[in-house]
Design a protein around this nucleic acid. Sequence first.
DNA 1: GAACCGTGGTT
DNA 2: TAACCAAGGTT
Length: 410
Amino acid sequence: MTEVNQDIDLSLYINQSAIQDLGPVIEGVQVWGPVTNQAFRKTFLEWYDKESRRLPWRESKDPYRIWVSEIMLQQTRVETVIDYYARFLSAFPTIKDLAEAKEDQLLKVWEGLGYYSRVRNMQVAAQQIMNDYDGIFPDNLADIKKLKGIGPYTAGAIGSIAFNIPVPAIDGNAMRVIARLFMINADIQKPANRKIFEAVGQYLVDPDRPGDFNQAIMDLGSSFETPKKAMPELSPLRDYTLATLTGTTDTYPIKSKKAKAKPVYYQALILQNAKGQVLIEKRTQHKLLNNLWTAPLIELGTKANQDLPITEKLDFLLAESKQNYGISPIFMRKEIGQVKHVFTHLIWHIQLAYGQLTGEDEQRINMLIASGEEDYAWVAPHQFEDYAFPTVQMKVWQAYENYQEMQKNK
DNA sequence: GAACCGTGGTT
DNA sequence: TAACCAAGGTT
């Protein structure tokens, strides 16, 4: 089989770098030998001991705390996580608290952090721990991997950090660092290629200090070995990193492009009752933003039927609100603003329409709410603490507020 | 295995 | 500004 890093002949660098011996070929990757590996770990961990970042979740080895931090950090920046981390632990200090919490409360604490299934899965896992492991976080990799929301990376991270299990934690940082170490020509976007990095990572990881080793990779990946504008010549591993030795840092890792986000068009209904409260709806039965609250949304499709004249569009809205909500606002006179929100794979374009409800409409809605079967609620502006809103809805509130300000100034 | 699932910062 | 990116996992 052709080597994945055939572009480079490692043997040429022996004694021309920190590489001293040749090792095995692992998943097609020619790596350095045991002598170099020992020196590499020593250099790396000495750097980590001196230069590691001080982060809240590094103050404790409590597996629960490590777990919470690892879930929050998935696809999320360190600076963003810090505040959420403190608030989450304050709201749910133990696994038991998490297992017994109400979902609405969970989502409220997670509000704005995104990828909301993370916190739902975490609660399921907390319940698994209560039921299957007597409330004690499992201390072996096989059981850790059984927990909902914990995949190969997170299992490795928790296992190595909290329990000193000698395994790698292969995330984006690790794949980038390892790809540059050995000039690995494998597309890190393809799931099948992750086994290459796991195998090489397993070879590299320090068996005595796996947690520190894995966190050292995180720190390196966020300092000198960043995706863009890397400063490889300042890295403690510069003499071990083949991409640095050959000036090819920007070539690695190889990564194919993702699909572009597609537009979807919506109308948001800002429906006011006599008290000036606005109707909101819980997104049950959805996958995106499930169980979070938004203004009633009417999907118009993937094409802007923006070409419709306003009057026709508003007639359409009246028909839709009658059909979807059983109501006919006495006036839905115009579009009062617009919101654009970008998700990973979707772009929402939302037009806001304002309507005042008749007493009859309001009564009908109130009966729905009182019956407990429909997920509607009235909220006063700036009195939102009881409901979890996604960021897109916060933008809708902002647009509505802007409209009200404009009216006031007229 | 590809598509899905959020948000905010950087380039 | 559009594209890319960040300590991924589930379906």
